[in-house]
């Protein structure tokens, strides 16, 4: 990367310095609407009920709507078949910290993958299991929606941090700008078929440890085959939530430089809102973002 170490608050606010970062790697194939990356945001007020009980049937429907929207297929079965082949070895990459991926989401995804013809013994959870991830031919990333005081945002890009060839702390603080590099490592490169952010609950501040005062029920899922577009939408939702809570702009620290860098430097997808088609489905109350 050319000069990200020189980035200051002035550059970040102007959003210009990162545009000058160097280029030259691989761009994946993404679901798109026209020339835009497609992100589906599916919400249902029944997803989480009293006592934070998750309605598994509702979540299953939400996952189905999400994959249908991302693939453009009319049935969930066809959608999963478009994402996953019967001979794939599939790794599910979930989140365990702060806002853990809900078991109901994982169950719905697993069911969909099975419907695509993959037997159960070729579907496994691979978070923090680098060797297992390396054996997979397809990955479904299912991170929880959250900030992180060491990386700014801790949702999509950070979800592969344990697959890097360097320790996680290598990417903390200002070095969060390099998180996208992990997605180009052999363990995961080119394997991600779907990013499905579990936004049933989100954390709009804090991390690495859970602080309940910053966790809210958003009742949503964010889906895309473009990880950067999914992260960009996740970040916009978090920023909108922070503004709603504080009544004024409330910036994230450290600055989530990783999002723009994943686009400009690592060519993993787009962070430009003008190049993202957001398809919002379902419950609109407190959606915090407009399609």
């Amino acid at each position: 990367m050319s000069d990200w170490r020189q980035v200051t608050r002035r550059d970040f606010v102007r959003d210009s310095a990162l545009a000058a970062l160097a280029a030259g790697s691989v761009r994946f194939s993404f679901a798109a609407e026209g020339d835009k990356s497609l992100v589906a945001l599916v919400r249902d007020e029944k997803a989480i009920g009293a006592g934070n009980a998750v309605d598994a049937a509702t979540v299953k429907k939400m996952v189905e709507e999400a994959v249908k929207a991302v693939t453009g297929e009319s049935s969930a079965s066809a959608a999963w078949k478009k994402l996953i082949k019967p001979d794939d070895v599939v790794g599910l990459v979930t989140t365990t910290a702060i806002t853990p991926t809900h078991a109901e989401v994982v169950a719905a995804v697993t069911e969909g993958i099975k419907a695509a013809g993959v037997p159960a013994d070729r579907i496994q959870e691979v978070q923090r299991k680098k060797d297992a991830a390396a054996q997979c031919t397809a990955l479904i990333s299912i991170p929880g929606l959250k900030t992180h005081r060491l990386t700014g945002i801790g949702t999509v890009l950070k979800n592969y941090i344990t697959f890097g060839s360097q320790p996680a702390r290598t990417f903390h603080g200002e070095n969060n700008v390099k998180l996208g590099s992990i997605w180009l490592e052999p363990t995961v490169k080119g394997k991600t078929r779907l990013v499905l952010v579990d936004a049933l609950a989100g954390a709009y501040e804090g991390g690495p440890q859970k602080d309940p005062k910053y966790v809210w029920n958003y009742n949503g899922l964010i889906a895309s085959t473009d990880p950067v577009a999914a992260e960009t939408i996740a970040l916009k939702i978090i920023m909108a939530k922070r503004k709603a809570v504080k009544g004024e702009e409330w910036e994230i620290s450290p600055a989530p430089l990783c999002v723009a860098a994943a686009d400009k430097e690592y060519k993993l997808g787009t962070s430009d809102p003008a190049k993202i088609a957001l398809k919002a489905i379902g419950w609109e109350k407190d959606i915090l973002i407009s399609a």
Binding site: R5, Q6, V7, R9, L150, G173, E174, S253, P254, A255
Partner: peptide
Amino acid sequence: THLCLNSLYFFAVE
């Protein structure tokens, strides 16, 4: 340290 400051407010990467 800078790491703590950066977790509270962003002045610069450096």
